[in-house]
Protein backbone atom coordinates (compact mmCIF):
# COMPACT_ATOMS: atom_id res chain seq x y z
CA UNK A 1 0.00 0.00 0.00
CA UNK A 2 1.21 3.40 -0.87
CA UNK A 3 1.09 5.48 2.28
CA UNK A 4 3.55 8.16 1.20
CA UNK A 5 1.26 10.82 -0.16
CA UNK A 6 2.92 13.76 -1.80
CA UNK A 7 2.18 16.93 0.08
CA UNK A 8 0.19 19.23 -2.19
CA UNK A 9 1.63 22.70 -2.36
CA UNK A 10 -0.86 25.33 -1.18
CA UNK A 11 -1.96 27.78 -3.87
CA UNK A 12 -0.33 30.73 -2.18
CA UNK A 13 2.73 29.11 -0.67
CA UNK A 14 5.59 31.46 0.23
CA UNK A 15 7.32 30.48 -3.02
CA UNK A 16 4.27 31.35 -5.10
CA UNK A 17 3.71 34.60 -3.23
CA UNK A 18 7.27 35.54 -4.02
CA UNK A 19 6.60 34.92 -7.73
CA UNK A 20 3.72 37.34 -7.58
CA UNK A 21 5.29 40.02 -5.40
CA UNK A 22 8.99 40.14 -6.25
CA UNK A 23 8.48 41.72 -9.71
CA UNK A 24 6.62 44.55 -8.05
CA UNK A 25 9.68 45.77 -6.18
CA UNK A 26 13.01 43.92 -6.06
CA UNK A 27 12.71 42.33 -9.47
CA UNK A 28 10.68 45.02 -11.22
CA UNK A 29 10.80 44.57 -15.00
CA UNK A 30 11.12 48.30 -15.68
CA UNK A 31 13.25 49.69 -12.88
CA UNK A 32 15.48 46.68 -12.17
CA UNK A 33 15.60 44.72 -15.41
CA UNK A 34 15.07 47.86 -17.50
CA UNK A 35 12.78 46.14 -20.00
CA UNK A 36 9.71 47.54 -21.73
CA UNK A 37 10.97 51.13 -21.53
CA UNK A 38 9.75 52.05 -25.00
CA UNK A 39 6.04 51.86 -24.23
CA UNK A 40 6.62 53.29 -20.76
CA UNK A 41 7.87 56.46 -22.44
CA UNK A 42 5.15 56.60 -25.05
CA UNK A 43 1.85 56.13 -23.24
CA UNK A 44 2.44 57.86 -19.90
CA UNK A 45 1.63 61.48 -20.79
CA UNK A 46 -1.79 60.93 -19.18
CA UNK A 47 -2.86 58.55 -16.43
CA UNK A 48 -5.84 56.94 -18.13
CA UNK A 49 -4.01 55.58 -21.19
CA UNK A 50 -1.17 54.46 -18.91
CA UNK A 51 -3.67 52.52 -16.78
CA UNK A 52 -5.40 50.91 -19.75
CA UNK A 53 -2.01 49.99 -21.21
CA UNK A 54 -1.02 48.44 -17.87
CA UNK A 55 -4.18 46.36 -17.70
CA UNK A 56 -3.64 45.22 -21.29
CA UNK A 57 -0.08 44.15 -20.54
CA UNK A 58 -1.14 42.34 -17.34
CA UNK A 59 -3.76 40.40 -19.31
CA UNK A 60 -1.31 39.54 -22.07
CA UNK A 61 1.60 38.48 -19.79
CA UNK A 62 -0.67 36.41 -17.55
CA UNK A 63 -2.47 34.59 -20.37
CA UNK A 64 0.64 34.14 -22.52
CA UNK A 65 2.52 32.65 -19.56
CA UNK A 66 -0.39 30.34 -18.78
CA UNK A 67 -0.86 29.15 -22.37
CA UNK A 68 2.83 28.58 -23.01
CA UNK A 69 3.16 26.74 -19.71
CA UNK A 70 0.26 24.45 -20.63
CA UNK A 71 1.81 23.75 -24.03
CA UNK A 72 5.40 23.57 -22.81
CA UNK A 73 5.81 19.78 -23.12
CA UNK A 74 4.55 19.68 -26.69
CA UNK A 75 6.30 22.71 -28.18
CA UNK A 76 9.11 21.60 -30.52
CA UNK A 77 12.21 23.44 -29.21
CA UNK A 78 13.31 24.42 -32.71
CA UNK A 79 10.23 26.57 -33.31
CA UNK A 80 9.52 27.58 -29.71
CA UNK A 81 10.21 31.28 -30.27
CA UNK A 82 7.77 31.31 -33.18
CA UNK A 83 5.14 29.54 -31.11
CA UNK A 84 5.63 32.08 -28.30
CA UNK A 85 5.32 34.96 -30.74
CA UNK A 86 2.14 33.56 -32.25
CA UNK A 87 0.56 33.21 -28.81
CA UNK A 88 1.54 36.77 -27.83
CA UNK A 89 0.43 38.24 -31.15
CA UNK A 90 -2.95 36.52 -30.95
CA UNK A 91 -3.58 37.79 -27.44
CA UNK A 92 -2.50 41.31 -28.33
CA UNK A 93 -4.75 41.46 -31.39
CA UNK A 94 -7.71 40.27 -29.33
CA UNK A 95 -6.96 42.89 -26.63
CA UNK A 96 -6.70 45.58 -29.30
CA UNK A 97 -10.06 44.59 -30.80
CA UNK A 98 -11.72 44.55 -27.38
CA UNK A 99 -10.37 48.01 -26.56
CA UNK A 100 -11.66 49.35 -29.88
CA UNK A 101 -15.08 47.93 -29.11
CA UNK A 102 -15.41 48.99 -25.47
CA UNK A 103 -13.11 51.98 -24.75
CA UNK A 104 -12.78 53.61 -28.15
CA UNK A 105 -11.43 56.98 -26.97
CA UNK A 106 -8.61 55.39 -24.98
CA UNK A 107 -7.82 53.01 -27.80
CA UNK A 108 -7.51 56.05 -30.07
CA UNK A 109 -4.97 57.61 -27.72
CA UNK A 110 -2.97 54.41 -27.37
CA UNK A 111 -3.08 53.97 -31.18
CA UNK A 112 -0.17 51.81 -32.30
CA UNK A 113 1.19 51.11 -28.84
CA UNK A 114 -1.31 48.36 -28.09
CA UNK A 115 -0.06 46.55 -31.17
CA UNK A 116 3.48 47.13 -29.98
CA UNK A 117 2.81 45.10 -26.82
CA UNK A 118 3.87 42.23 -29.08
CA UNK A 119 7.41 43.58 -29.05
CA UNK A 120 7.43 44.23 -25.30
CA UNK A 121 10.52 42.37 -24.09
CA UNK A 122 8.94 41.67 -20.69
CA UNK A 123 6.44 39.22 -22.16
CA UNK A 124 8.86 37.34 -24.38
CA UNK A 125 11.39 37.29 -21.55
CA UNK A 126 8.97 35.76 -19.06
CA UNK A 127 7.85 33.10 -21.53
CA UNK A 128 11.39 32.05 -22.37
CA UNK A 129 12.80 32.32 -18.86
CA UNK A 130 9.89 31.06 -16.79
CA UNK A 131 6.82 29.65 -18.49
CA UNK A 132 8.76 27.21 -20.72
CA UNK A 133 10.00 25.38 -17.63
CA UNK A 134 7.31 25.90 -14.98
CA UNK A 135 3.88 24.60 -14.11
CA UNK A 136 0.78 26.58 -15.19
CA UNK A 137 -0.19 28.04 -11.79
CA UNK A 138 3.24 29.51 -10.91
CA UNK A 139 3.49 30.75 -14.52
CA UNK A 140 0.18 32.55 -14.24
CA UNK A 141 1.29 34.19 -10.98
CA UNK A 142 4.63 35.15 -12.50
CA UNK A 143 2.83 36.73 -15.47
CA UNK A 144 0.42 38.70 -13.31
CA UNK A 145 3.27 39.80 -11.04
CA UNK A 146 5.41 41.06 -13.89
CA UNK A 147 2.44 42.77 -15.50
CA UNK A 148 1.63 44.56 -12.25
CA UNK A 149 5.29 45.49 -11.75
CA UNK A 150 5.24 47.09 -15.19
CA UNK A 151 1.85 48.70 -14.64
CA UNK A 152 2.67 50.32 -11.29
CA UNK A 153 5.61 52.17 -12.78
CA UNK A 154 3.51 53.27 -15.77
CA UNK A 155 0.72 54.63 -13.60
CA UNK A 156 3.15 56.45 -11.27
CA UNK A 157 4.96 58.04 -14.22
CA UNK A 158 1.59 58.88 -15.80
CA UNK A 159 0.40 60.52 -12.57
CA UNK A 160 3.48 62.76 -12.28
CA UNK A 161 3.48 63.71 -15.96
CA UNK A 162 -0.24 64.47 -16.08
CA UNK A 163 -0.16 66.47 -12.83
CA UNK A 164 2.69 68.76 -13.90
CA UNK A 165 2.17 68.58 -17.67
CA UNK A 166 -1.60 69.07 -17.91
CA UNK A 167 -2.55 70.14 -14.37
CA UNK A 168 -4.99 67.26 -14.01
CA UNK A 169 -5.28 63.75 -12.58
CA UNK A 170 -7.21 61.07 -14.51
CA UNK A 171 -8.55 63.85 -16.74
CA UNK A 172 -9.95 65.95 -13.88
CA UNK A 173 -8.31 69.34 -13.37
CA UNK A 174 -6.71 69.56 -9.92
CA UNK A 175 -4.55 72.66 -10.19
CA UNK A 176 -6.82 75.53 -9.08
CA UNK A 177 -7.61 78.16 -11.69
CA UNK A 178 -6.19 80.78 -9.31
CA UNK A 179 -2.70 79.34 -9.75
CA UNK A 180 -2.87 79.97 -13.49
CA UNK A 181 -4.00 83.55 -12.89
CA UNK A 182 -0.98 84.04 -10.65
CA UNK A 183 1.27 82.98 -13.51
CA UNK A 184 1.58 79.23 -12.98
CA UNK A 185 2.09 77.37 -16.27
CA UNK A 186 1.83 73.71 -17.14
CA UNK A 187 5.24 72.28 -17.91
CA UNK A 188 5.23 71.41 -21.61
CA UNK A 189 8.39 69.36 -21.21
CA UNK A 190 6.45 66.90 -19.04
CA UNK A 191 4.35 65.92 -22.06
CA UNK A 192 7.40 64.90 -24.11
CA UNK A 193 8.95 61.41 -23.88
CA UNK A 194 12.36 62.54 -22.51
CA UNK A 195 10.68 63.61 -19.28
CA UNK A 196 9.27 60.09 -18.85
CA UNK A 197 12.80 58.75 -19.08
CA UNK A 198 13.97 61.23 -16.45
CA UNK A 199 11.10 60.30 -14.12
CA UNK A 200 11.84 56.59 -14.54
CA UNK A 201 15.48 57.40 -13.78
CA UNK A 202 14.44 59.14 -10.57
CA UNK A 203 12.26 56.17 -9.58
CA UNK A 204 15.20 53.80 -10.17
CA UNK A 205 17.42 56.09 -8.07
CA UNK A 206 14.98 56.19 -5.15
CA UNK A 207 14.38 52.44 -5.32
CA UNK A 208 18.08 51.55 -5.34
CA UNK A 209 18.94 53.90 -2.52
CA UNK A 210 16.28 52.23 -0.33
CA UNK A 211 17.12 48.60 -1.16
CA UNK A 212 20.62 47.38 -0.32
CA UNK A 213 19.99 44.16 -2.29
CA UNK A 214 20.02 46.14 -5.51
CA UNK A 215 23.49 47.63 -5.02
CA UNK A 216 25.79 46.52 -7.79
CA UNK A 217 29.40 45.63 -7.10
CA UNK A 218 32.01 46.72 -9.55
Amino acid sequence: MNTVKREKEPLFSPKNRKLLLSPINLNNPITVQVLGICSALAVTAKMKPAFVMSVSVIVVTALANLIISLLRNGIPPRIRIIVQLVVIATLVIVVDQVLKAYVYDVSKQLSVFVGLIITNCIIMGRLEAFAMSSKPWPSLLDGIGNGIGYGIILVVVGFVRELFGSGSVWGYPVVPAGFFEMGYRNNGFMILPPMALIIIGIIIWIQRSRNKELYQEN
Binding site: T90, I93, V94, Q97, V98, K100, A101, Y102, Y104, D105, K108
Partner: peptide, 19 residues
Protein backbone atom coordinates in the same frame (compact mmCIF):
# COMPACT_ATOMS: atom_id res chain seq x y z
CA UNK B 1 -8.92 35.88 -34.50
CA UNK B 2 -11.57 35.90 -37.20
CA UNK B 3 -14.34 35.05 -34.77
CA UNK B 4 -13.17 37.78 -32.38
CA UNK B 5 -13.13 40.28 -35.23
CA UNK B 6 -16.62 39.29 -36.38
CA UNK B 7 -18.10 39.43 -32.88
CA UNK B 8 -16.68 42.87 -32.09
CA UNK B 9 -17.15 44.48 -35.50
CA UNK B 10 -20.64 45.98 -34.92
CA UNK B 11 -19.53 47.75 -31.74
CA UNK B 12 -16.35 49.03 -33.34
CA UNK B 13 -18.25 50.45 -36.30
CA UNK B 14 -20.70 52.13 -33.96
CA UNK B 15 -17.79 53.70 -32.03
CA UNK B 16 -16.24 54.98 -35.24
CA UNK B 17 -19.56 56.49 -36.35
CA UNK B 18 -20.05 58.16 -32.96
CA UNK B 19 -16.53 59.55 -33.09
Amino acid sequence: LSSAAMLLKPMQQRNEAVD
